[in-house]
Simulated assay, not measured.
Amino acid sequence: MIILGLTGSIGMGKSTTAKLFAEAGVPVYDADATVHLIYQGEAVPAIEAAFPGATAAGKVDRARLSELVVHDPAAIRRLEQIVHPMLRGYHQKFLADAERSGAPVAVVDVPLLYETGGENRVDAVVVVTTTPEIQRQRILARNNMSEQKLDAILARQMPDAEKRERADFVVDTSHGLGPVRARIRDILDQAAKMPRRRP
C-alpha cells in the first residue's frame, strides 16, 4: 500500500481535497478530526493540567485553548507533546485497517506534515494550494478569525512556496471542484505505480 501525506497551509482547500479523495474510494485519516475526538476524551485531564481553564464541561474548549497558545511557541510545543503520542495510536490503527482492506493507496491528512517531519513516514506528499488572495478571503470568512490570529497561524506554517517545491504532487483548488477531482484521479494513477519510499 502506498501512503500519501496530504498537507497544505490553512485556507488552501485541504479538507475539501481530503473529502474528494474519500469520495474516490480512498481511505483517509483525518488528523484534525482525531484531535477533536481526543479533545472530548483522553486528552482532557492532561490539557487542563498544563493549561488551567482550557477545558469546560468535560472537554477541551478549543477557542480558549487557542487563545492560550497561539502566540506562545513554548506553549504550542507543550501541547504537541501531550497530543502527538495520543494521535499516534489512532494513526497506526488506521493504516493497519487500510492495509487489511486491500486498499492500494491510503491518504493521511496532516496539516503540519512538513513542520513535524511527517514526510519521512509517507511514500509521497500531496500539497494543496491556492492564491494568497483566495487563501486570506477563505480564512477571514471563518468565525473567530482575525487578521492578527491568521498572521500568528501562518507564522507557524512553512511558506506555501516551499511546500510546493518539496511536494511530489500539487493540487490547486483555485478553479473549483472539477479540476481537483481530475487531479486526484491523475495522482491515484501515478501513486499506484510508485515504489514504496518510507522506511
Rank of each mutant, 00 (worst) to 15 (best):
D189K: 09
L20F: 06
A182H: 09
L87M: 12
M1R: 06
A49W: 04
V35P: 04
R121F: 08
M194V: 09
S9P: 06
A57Y: 03
R100D: 09
Q40F: 02
A98Y: 10
V69C: 14
P195C: 00
P52Q: 08
G117Q: 06
E42D: 06
K193Q: 12
V122T: 08
M145W: 09
A43G: 13
F169H: 11
M86W: 03
M158W: 09
A155N: 05
T130N: 12
F94Y: 04
I47F: 01
Y90I: 03
R142S: 10
F94R: 05
S174V: 00
H71R: 15
A152C: 15
Q40W: 01
A182M: 05
G25V: 09
L113V: 13
R78N: 03
L87D: 02
Q81N: 13
V26I: 11
A56Q: 11
R198Q: 06
H71L: 12
G5V: 07
T55S: 14
R138K: 05
Q92M: 11
E115D: 13
I153N: 08
A191S: 13
G176N: 12
G58D: 05
S66Q: 13
Q157R: 11
P104G: 08
G102Y: 03
G5W: 05
F51Q: 14
M145L: 13
H91W: 14
P45Q: 10
A43F: 09
E99Q: 13
R181C: 05
G25T: 07
T129F: 06
L20N: 00
I10T: 03
A124T: 10
V125W: 07
D72F: 06
A161Q: 12
N120V: 13
P27G: 00
Q148P: 01
G118N: 14
E119Y: 07
Q92R: 15
S101K: 10
K19R: 12
L6D: 03
P199D: 08
V108M: 14
A54P: 08
V26Y: 02
T173Q: 01
E23S: 13
T17S: 13
E80H: 07
V60S: 09
V70D: 06
Y39V: 06
I187H: 05
K93C: 03
A141W: 09
L20H: 02
E99C: 11
G11V: 04
R166A: 13
A192M: 08
M158E: 12
L37R: 15
G102T: 11
K93Y: 00
R185E: 14
N120W: 06
T131K: 06
A96S: 14
A63Y: 08
A98N: 02
L188D: 04
A124C: 09
K163G: 07
I10G: 00
A50T: 03
R197N: 10
M158Y: 06
R77P: 00
A56F: 01
S66R: 15
G118L: 13
D151A: 15
Q190P: 00
E162R: 15
A46T: 08
